[in-house]
Design a protein around this nucleic acid. Sequence first.
DNA 1: GCCGTTTTCGGCCCGACTGTTTTCAGTCG
Length: 579
Amino acid sequence: MDITFMSNEAIAKILQEIAIYLEMDDVPFRPRAYEKASEGILGLDRSAAEIYSSGGLAALENIPNVGISIAEKIEEFLKTGKIKDYELLKRKIPVNLGELRMVEGIGPKKIKILYQKLKIRNLKDLESAVKAGKIRKLAGFGERSEENISKGLEFIKKSGGRFVLGFIDAQVGEITGNLRKIKGVREAVVAGSIRRRKDAIGDADILVISDKPKEVMDYFVSMPGVARIFAHGETKSAIKLSNGLDVDLRVVPEESYGAALNYFTGSKDHNVALRELAIKRGWKLNEYGLFDGKKRIAGKNEEEIYKKLGLSYIEPELREMSGELEASRAGKLPDLIGYGDLKGDLQVQTSWTDGAQSIEEMARAAIDLGLEYIVITDHTKRLAMTRGLNETRIRMQWKEIDEINRKLKSEGLKFRILKGTECDILKDGTMDLPDEILSKCDVVGASVHSLFNLPKKEQTDRIMRAMSNPHVDILFHPTGRVLNKRDAYEVDMDAIIAHAKKTGTVLEIDAYPDRADLKAEHIRKCIEAGVKMSIDSDAHHSSHFEFLKYGISQARRGWAEKKYIINVWPVEKMLGMLK
DNA sequence: GCCGTTTTCGGCCCGACTGTTTTCAGTCG
């Protein structure tokens, strides 16, 4: 059997499902062990199949949270495509765990009862049982449970899971702003994965300091846009907005603010590790503080908690259990690029192709935001639907850029519009515009906009050939993914990163919210390889320059310092870093 | 079942809310 078909995701999913099955039977501790092993597999930057074929069983055991027993199960899976223990569990309760687990309020124990009593195997069975009023008659369930399951099913049909940070950020900010206006509220902040600035988020967590929690909670569950109330308590409430976004709210007293912020910011694994550090010192860490017996020894702010635990402060974007605790302890955390550090934007579309506004409008918006330069990068002729530029039209565009630059200068503005292109990479890796044109551009970006489903080797070779072109400065949105729309194309990113180093090509962090491309793990690899990156808005409208901050978030999540990003520099220095 | 700057054995993060209960199990984060 060709083991390359055994993806890490497939292995992780089986381990995760074993954990759920064990949970059903109230097996102690082992569920968590399988869950952690599953996370360990997902966190790998190589495939488990590769690890196994190069180092055998012993190498599998080196995977975090994988011991001898789970290593053997992974080996069994890689060799036979099956895990016997899993098949046995699955035969006993043959249900679609992935589906059923999506329903809010349904966990392992209830899945077991639903199968054993009503033979419910999937969402369809569950829906029929709800409609027939069978759920309410089960022991441990009731009318309310049935109603909640019914509502849960509705929402699964309506919305499919994750939200793009840049598309919900403002709405959550508005809610927080309104909470801040309520009497007795001293602070209201966003925590959770939004504070960690993840590119895609599952829900929103808001933290409030108030002496009058009841008023906060009453407002929260009755504010406009609330579609469902999951919980309405004194210190904790949870709702779903009509767009499907779940929002959790917690109210804590001021002396617990730091501990609560830390706890609700996560990540979960990061928090668990901090609690374990506390336990080792004989203390206890929870959302109310760090305690030595009954005595609170820290909790008012996050800094003092980290300090007591022997750590320097860790920025939220780094709290993903990917080495930040070790780095913090050793004083080796990166000096992250800041949110005000960009001086230019290297990918901007205008009304010459699919952008909404003129070159001048885009330039003036960039000036208002404090940028010093932008590169105009309209599409090229292969992208016919955008009226992509050919040789003649791009020469016309250069004239317009020269004119506007002169005009801005005559107004005393110190700003520069650079000539660029977002040039299509054709199927064979050649460019959509001739070298003669590319050589006259200040900045050449190259993009894949077609043939997303080429085989991995062919796609990788195609892109690498484009990067080898001496005029191609930047590879735009290198993986091509669009969140909630399409996956990245099959491409060997390690090879691309190595080739970027070899050819001096810059890799872009496209900040457009549903692109967020490069991903954080690629950014870290670029840093390790010594590959330079740019952070670009990919603006199609003057309001899109705001998106640059999401690119900075992404860079921070990839541990990037200023020095790795070329557009933190003034224009001449930036240009000097290109080919 | 995993793991070790307290441990190779004996631990394993912790608390809030709901619904169905009559003191608590299940779920969630």
